[in-house]
Computed example of a mutant assay.
Amino acid sequence: MRTAILLIGAFALAACGSDPAPSEPDVTESPIPVEPDGGIGDGAGPPPEEALANRIPTRFHGAWDYVGGTCDLASDLRMEVSGSEILFYESVGIVTATEAEGDAVIVDLAMEGEGETWQQRTRLMIEGEGNDERLLTSDGDQPRVVDEYPSKRCPPQQ
C-alpha cells in the first residue's frame, strides 16, 4: 500500500512540473512585402532575361494604322501588336525572338497568311509623342531606312 501511495505522489509531482497542453506559438500574420522590382516578396526577383527575350516591349503594344488610314478593322495597313504576336490584315506573325537596337527592337516572326508560311525580321521604332507618335517599321535584316508608311496609334475599339 505504501508503494502505491508513493507512486501516486510521484505521478502527482511529475504532473505539476509539466505543462498539460503545449501552448501554440505566437503567430502574427503580416502582409507579404512587395519588392522594389514589383515581386511579391518571396525573394525570387524579376523574371530571368530569357523569359522576356521573346516578347515585344509594351511601348509598341496596341493597334496601329497608316497615318492616312481610318483605323478600321478592314484597313489593309492596320496591325495589332502584342507581346507575343503581330496581327496584320491577312496574316499573323508569332514572335520567335527579339533583339534590342537602341530605341528600336528587331522582332523575328514566324508568319502565316493566305495559305503561306515564312520567316520575317521586322524593326519596330517609335518616334514622337501624343498625337504625333508614329510607329516606324523596316526590314530587320537591312540598315534603317525611312518608313514611307508610318503608322499612328489607333484609339481603343468600342
Rank of each mutant, 00 (worst) to 15 (best):
P143K: 01
L77G: 10
G17V: 08
D141K: 09
T28D: 12
Q120M: 14
K152E: 09
G43Y: 06
P150G: 10
E127Q: 14
S138L: 05
T3P: 01
V34Q: 07
N131Y: 09
G39W: 01
F60C: 08
G102T: 07
E114F: 13
L124G: 03
R153L: 07
E116W: 00
P150R: 04
F11W: 13
E50V: 12
R59W: 08
L135H: 04
I5W: 11
A97M: 01
S82L: 04
R78Q: 11
I94G: 02
P31C: 01
V67K: 00
L77K: 13
A100L: 07
A74V: 07
A110R: 12
P47G: 05
V95C: 02
A4L: 11
Q142D: 12
L124A: 02
F60A: 04
G38K: 05
P20N: 09
T58C: 02
T58Q: 14
G113V: 06
Q120W: 03
R121N: 05
P155H: 02
T137P: 02
E85M: 08
N54T: 15
G130Y: 08
F88G: 09
A21H: 13
D108G: 12
R144T: 10
D76P: 15
V34K: 06
L87K: 13
V92F: 03
S138W: 15
P47Q: 09
S151H: 15
M79Y: 07
S82T: 15
R55F: 11
T96L: 03
P36Y: 00
C16V: 09
F11P: 00
T28M: 03
L109R: 02
D37H: 07
I8V: 13
T137G: 08
I32A: 11
Q120Y: 00
G45H: 08
C154A: 07
I106M: 05
S151A: 13
S138P: 12
A12Y: 08
G41N: 03
E101Y: 00
A10G: 09
Q120R: 12
G140C: 06
V92L: 12
G102M: 10
T28Y: 04
E50I: 14
E116D: 14
A100C: 06
W64D: 05
D132P: 04
A10T: 09
Q142M: 13
W118F: 06
D139M: 04
S151K: 15
R2N: 12
S84D: 14
E24D: 12
W118R: 01
D72N: 11
E85L: 09
G62P: 00
G113M: 03
G115S: 02
A100T: 09
S151D: 06
G113C: 00
E50C: 09
G45R: 10
I56H: 04
L87Y: 06
G130W: 00
A74Y: 12
P48F: 10
S18R: 13
C71V: 01
A53R: 13
S75N: 13
P155W: 01
